[in-house]
Design a protein around this nucleic acid. Structure first.
Lengths: 228, 228
DNA sequence: GCATATTTGTCCGTATGTATA
DNA sequence: CTATACATACGGACAAATATG
């Protein structure tokens, strides 16, 4: 019943969630979640027919959902070939970290008390999850931490960009076979950066952040070597 | 003949341009250009039927083009109401300038010889156009100048963001009744910033840039007062 | 407030073009 | 080179929402 012929990555479980605002957006929400959680792997082709049937929507509607996700760079649209889950190149990863440096370094210079409080919550959630060996939640808290950091800029558009950017990076995180070794070092460094900001040590914080991002990028690149 | 019943803002003139890659993208290119040049005004509703007929494409294809432009924030999609040319609020303008400050200030810190050369070309084009009172081209050169500045960051994603951001700002530029008074002061300031960068005066350049953007924003806000 | 006309949202069937085995 | 599978694009249909009188 759960896995009959038309089922695609368990999509039929989401079928009942179709009932609110715009159909295409709801389909996009479902697919976005599936991609983030790794049910669809980078490079995999998403068939219009199979997914449309599994979700019970027409191909026209599904194509609109594909468009949405293509513009978030989670899917890649190749003309007359179909849509594929995005495969990030090492150049893509490098570019994502260039953008992170620009946004997050700027955020450090706009630090405010309320903003820092939101970061503190994320740090503590991460520390708690780490103590209990829930490494996936450590990763989630880490993303929340960097979103809170980005929010110091006070710009909705930069928040959106950051959210999209971190969603893209999750495509890469799935290649890390050992989530603990990837997340563990940054639990303490999130705390370090936070306390530097709280103490008003802007320049030290900026240096720590740049080194933090350099190290994270290097770690990711190392694990990502095999791919093109 | 030029203006018969089905004609919408002269769209039929673009009909022969339909012949290359993906139809929806080509339609989006045409509409994007029309919006940038002010043929469609902010707040105006774009009828699926009228434009589809004018361009000779089906509603499904046109809707895909609308999606593309909605995600570039040039169009706004209201459920069951249709798509409208985006109307920027003063908050939107403020946010756009916040993003510009982050990206362009960061760019100043990444200045390189080749990048500065591209900026110099744009400056000289602008100065030439200003001497010959071609104020619209002054505006175009100014946009090229800031794109070249942004490119100093060395990030494709930031370039894309900047391009989109400047396209959004053009929605606002159309409310300026006197393009000369808006563009003229910045011809000289573009030159000033360029020479500071070329001389390696990074800190002075950063201060000049921030003051530049503050002034531009204030000027725009002033002209934009009436709207919500 | 009601009834009608218009427009969008969604789906379907089909013909054509394109890539790949 | 042929065959197959698939995406692209069209046109028509109907329901639902909205605008208009």
């Amino acid at each position: 019943m759960i896995s009959h012929m038309d089922d695609v990555a368990g999509l039929e479980h989401d079928r009942d969630r179709l009932g609110r605002s715009s159909t295409a957006e709801r389909v996009a929400d479902i697919l976005r979640e599936r991609i983030a959680q790794g049910f669809f792997s980078p490079g995999q082709r998403l068939s219009e027919e199979a997914i449309g049937a599994a979700l019970g929507v027409s191909r026209n509607t599904l194509r609109e959902a594909f468009r949405l996700l293509s513009h978030e760079r989670l899917l890649e649209h190749r003309l007359n070939r179909g849509v594929f889950v995005r495969v990030l190149s090492t150049d893509d990863v490098a570019d994502l970290y260039r953008v992170r440096r620009v946004i997050e370094v700027s955020a450090v210079r706009h630090a405010s008390a309320e903003g820092i409080a939101a970061m503190r919550e994320a740090v503590e959630d991460g520390e708690r999850a780490a103590r209990e060996n829930r490494w996936r939640e450590v990763g989630t808290a880490n993303i929340r931490y960097h979103q809170a950091l980005s929010r110091l800029n006070g710009s909705q558009r930069l928040d959106d960009l950051m959210r999209q950017l971190l969603a893209e990076l999750r495509l890469v995180f799935h290649v890390m076979r050992n989530p603990r070794s990837f997340h563990e070092p940054f639990v303490a460094r999130n705390r370090t950066l936070l306390e530097l900001l709280a103490a008003g040590e802007t320049e030290k914080a900026e240096r720590e952040l740049v080194s933090y991002l350099d190290d994270a990028e290097a770690l990711l690149m190392e694990a990502y070597r095999p791919q093109p």
